[in-house]
């Protein structure tokens, strides 16, 4: 079957919101509104790559304090303990709670790391011309990255729930730590980075 032409090569663009096909103006500086939904038409997300790079780098920098500083301070019968993200996982492992250790490990360590690595990989390879099969794989990688991103919020929510519940005066209290703030920022920034990446750029190369 003959391959369909690219919308962009015909001077057309699809609205990001409602997918209406619109003819692009001759000058790229004209801001075009979608006739159906009123959204701004971008043939490609404006400055997609530099935006994604900036957000990704910011999230990588914040990933350091998110892991170094405690996300939670726990007081139990007068004894204080600081918990980092990793120490939370280790604690579950020590208690033999494999399933839960795996859930936390996946949500708060694997998912953010995987997101950053796969966005980095996409950003570094988007200008190279690979096979069509590779382009398809990269598109799937992007969709998975975009889809799983929200699950790293698990840790932030757990900290919130524990802070709300464990306020038992002298017996036990939980306070959120500064690491939680950084981790929350990492989640938001990686999500924004994934949203700024335009997967159509993967297909804009001369595929062999």
């Amino acid at each position: 079957m003959k391959k369909p032409p690219r919308a962009r090569s015909l001077g057309l663009a699809s609205c990001d919101i409602c997918r209406q096909i619109v003819r692009l103006p001759n000058s790229p500086s004209i801001r075009l509104k979608c006739p159906r939904c009123g959204g701004t038409i971008h043939s490609r997300i404006t400055h997609s790559l530099s935006r994604t790079w900036a957000l990704l780098l910011a999230s990588m920098i914040l990933y350091v304090p998110a892991n170094v500083y405690p996300v939670m301070k726990n007081t139990y019968l007068g004894a204080e303990s600081d918990n980092t993200i990793l120490s939370g996982v280790v604690l579950f492992l020590k208690e033999g709670d494999w399933v839960l250790a795996l859930v936390i490990f996946t949500a708060s360590i694997i998912v953010p790391l995987l997101k950053m690595v796969s966005l980095l990989y996409l950003l570094m390879n988007v200008r190279k011309a690979p096979h069509e099969r590779r382009a398809r794989q990269q598109t799937i990688l992007y969709r998975v990255t975009e889809l799983v991103g929200r699950w790293s919020m698990v840790d932030v929510f757990v900290i919130g729930i524990l802070t709300a519940l464990v306020q038992m005066g002298v017996i036990s209290t939980v306070e959120p730590g500064i690491g939680a703030m950084a981790f929350g920022a990492v989640v938001v920034l990686t999500m924004l980075a994934a949203i700024s990446f335009d997967p159509r750029l993967i297909w804009d190369r001369d595929l062999t």
Binding site: R150, M153, D155
Partner: peptide, 20 residues
Amino acid sequence: HPWEMADVFVVSILVAMVKM
């Protein structure tokens, strides 16, 4: 749409329950 996380919240409650 991407910012809706009620489902993630439920998983977090389950995690917090086991934790406590």
